[in-house]
Design a protein around this nucleic acid. Structure first.
Length: 270
DNA sequence: CGTAGACCCTGGAAGC
DNA sequence: TGCTTCCAGGGTCTAC
């Protein structure tokens, strides 16, 4: 389940491998993933363009191409990129789109086919991806964060963290971890937080996202990059998918909050 | 306007 | 053993 740190890791991997590759051929095995174009348009759009740069915003991957073109890819739950050398195309189950370049087969694989692709004749991705600020953006300071909290008074804090309109890139796992680290009950409304808690929460968001990027993301069952490498942040998870609290030995509670499986320690988070 | 819930999809785990 | 049911959840859409 890729969230910001995992997508950042994939972006860095793609950047290292495929920048300056020219797309020679595109095989679309599942055209449902292409959201704003037909299969034919998608292929025509990409053929003969060179990959200039790969960027990330929130959980979106952005491929900047020649001729002011851009392809935006979202991995959703299970999306992965595999890069194979030219002597082994090696199509496997759940490969949906294969980009052939001079040196590689770049395969988009997604066992649940939830991922999405969009293409644009525009490289200003902020115009096309309308989501909030990056957690590690230095412009995200306490003033702005306070305003966001104020705007969402009635919403519970977990839903707020997951809402990409405000801070982007946080998914369910990191939302759980952040609230645990900040000792905040996920059922709290934004208006329940005092000044100190708001300050702690902002610091913890930045700290955890930064740390997870350093550890190349979290691998729970499926996230990988560089074909089969995995991230290591799962070794640092304190509450998500845990049974017992690392701090106080209380039983971790799991319940559905904001329509997502939410893990928290009722003793430490209140 | 905001929000809760359904939906997309599949594999794996749990239940029977 | 083998079947059915449930669960995972990001983002989008619909219903209230």
């Amino acid at each position: 389940m890729p969230e910001l740190p995992e997508v950042e890791t994939v972006k860095n991997y793609l950047n290292k491998k495929i920048v300056n590759e020219v797309i020679l051929k595109v095989d679309v095995l599942n055209e449902k993933l292409i959201k704003n174009a037909s299969k034919k348009e998608f292929i025509f759009f990409l053929i003969n363009e060179k990959i200039i740069d790969v960027k990330r915003k929130g959980k979106y991957l952005i491929f900047l191409l020649t001729n002011n073109k851009m392809m935006i890819s979202h991995l959703r739950m299970e999306g992965k990129y595999f890069i194979n050398s030219k002597n082994k195309k090696n199509i496997t189950k759940h490969d949906h789109i294969i980009f052939e370049t001079e040196n590689f087969f770049i395969k988009y694989n997604d066992s649940r086919a939830f991922g999405t692709f969009n293409i644009y004749y525009n490289q200003n991705y902020n115009e096309e991806i309308k989501i909030g600020i990056e957690p590690l953006d230095e412009n995200l300071n306490l003033n702005i964060f306070n305003e966001m909290i104020l705007k969402n008074k009635k919403k519970n804090i977990k839903s707020f963290l997951l809402d990409q309109k405000y801070i982007c890139g946080i998914g369910n796992i990191y939302a759980n971890e952040i609230l645990f680290e900040a000792s905040i009950d996920p059922k709290y409304k934004c208006s329940d937080l005092d000044e100190k808690q708001i300050q702690i929460l902002l610091n913890v968001i930045k700290k955890i996202i930064k740390r997870a990027i350093d550890k190349k993301g979290t691998t729970i069952s499926s996230f990988s990059f560089n074909n089969d490498e995995i991230g290591s942040y799962q070794n640092y998870l304190k509450v998500h998918s845990k049974k017992v609290c690392k701090k106080c030995d209380s039983k971790i509670v799991k319940e559905k909050i904001a329509n997502r499986g939410t893990y928290y320690c009722p003793n430490c988070q209140k």
